[in-house]
Each structure stands twice: as structure tokens, then as C-alpha cells.
Amino acid sequence: EDAPSSDDLEQFAKQFKQRRIKLGFTQADVGLALGTLYGNVFSQTTICRFEALQLSFKNMCKLKPLLNKWLEETDSSS
């Protein structure tokens, strides 16, 4: 699987934040939901840093598919 470019990540982080707010979730909600869904709880700080593009590139790449999946799950259930 190709690693996303930093442009991709930036684009995704923006879209993710907009969708999250529109769906009415806090950063902490998302962190907990990831724990429920995938067994990895993320702190509010981590989600905040992801949205602000302040995580390392490697961590951004790791989180992106999880957050993407969460969006898909959340979209389909709302």
C-alpha cells in the first residue's frame, strides 16, 4: 500500500475535522470510539494533533486509515 503524501494527509485531516464537527463528535469521542471499534484508544490530544498536523508523518499514516474507517462507520450508521 502506498504511503499517503503529506498533501493527502493535510487534505484528509481538514476533511476529517469538518466531518467530525458536522457529525457532532468531540475529539475525545473519536479517541474513545476508536478504542471501542479497533481496540486502540487514542487520547483527545492525539486526535487534536492529528487534525493540526502535529504528529510525526509515520503516526499520521498510522492513524489515517483508522480515522477514515471510523468516518465510514459513523456515516453509515447516522
Rank of each mutant, 00 (worst) to 15 (best):
T26H: 09
K64W: 06
Q44F: 06
D29M: 02
S6Y: 13
Q54M: 04
K58N: 15
N40T: 12
T26W: 00
E51G: 07
G39N: 08
S5C: 14
L63F: 09
G35I: 00
S5G: 15
L9M: 10
R20T: 01
K64M: 11
L34T: 06
K69W: 02
G31N: 04
K14H: 15
K64C: 05
K14S: 04
K69E: 06
D7V: 08
D7S: 04
P65L: 07
S78T: 13
P65W: 05
C61A: 12
G31D: 05
L66A: 07
T45D: 15
T46D: 14
N59S: 10
L9A: 03
F25A: 07
K58G: 10
T36A: 09
K17D: 00
A13W: 00
C61D: 00
D75Q: 14
A13Q: 02
L63P: 01
F50S: 01
D75S: 14
K22C: 06
A13P: 04
W70L: 03
D29G: 07
K62R: 09
K17A: 08
L66F: 11
L32S: 14
Q27S: 05
S77R: 11
K58M: 11
C48S: 14
K22A: 13
Q54D: 12
T46C: 02
T74F: 15
G24N: 03
F57N: 11
T36E: 14
S56C: 04
N68Q: 12
C61T: 05
S6H: 15
I47M: 02
I21Q: 08
S43F: 00
S78A: 11
R19C: 10
A3E: 11
T26E: 06
S78W: 08
F42A: 10
D75A: 12
Q15W: 07
Q11V: 11
Q54S: 09
L32Q: 14
P65N: 07
S6A: 15
G31R: 04
F57R: 12
D8W: 01
W70K: 01
E73M: 12
Y38T: 10
Q54N: 08
F25H: 00
T46S: 08
S78M: 07
F25C: 08
S6E: 15
G24Y: 00
L55F: 06
S43H: 10
V41Q: 14
E72C: 07
K64L: 04
K69G: 09
I47N: 01
A3Q: 15
V41M: 12
F50P: 04
A28K: 10
Q27K: 07
N68I: 11
N40Y: 07
S43P: 12
S77V: 13
P65E: 08
V41W: 09
G39A: 05
Q11R: 09
S77T: 13
M60I: 01
N59K: 13
A3P: 13
T74I: 04
S76F: 14
Q27M: 07
A28C: 07
Q11E: 12
E10L: 10
K62E: 10
W70M: 01
G39D: 08
F16K: 03
E73F: 10
F50R: 01
F12E: 02
Q54E: 12
S6I: 15
D7T: 10
V30N: 07
F42I: 15
A28T: 11
T45G: 10
V41P: 13
M60T: 05
Q15N: 15
F57L: 12
T46E: 12
L67W: 01
N68P: 01
L34P: 01
A13N: 09
K58I: 11
S5L: 14
G31P: 00
L67T: 02
L55Q: 02
T45E: 15
F57T: 11
L34S: 01
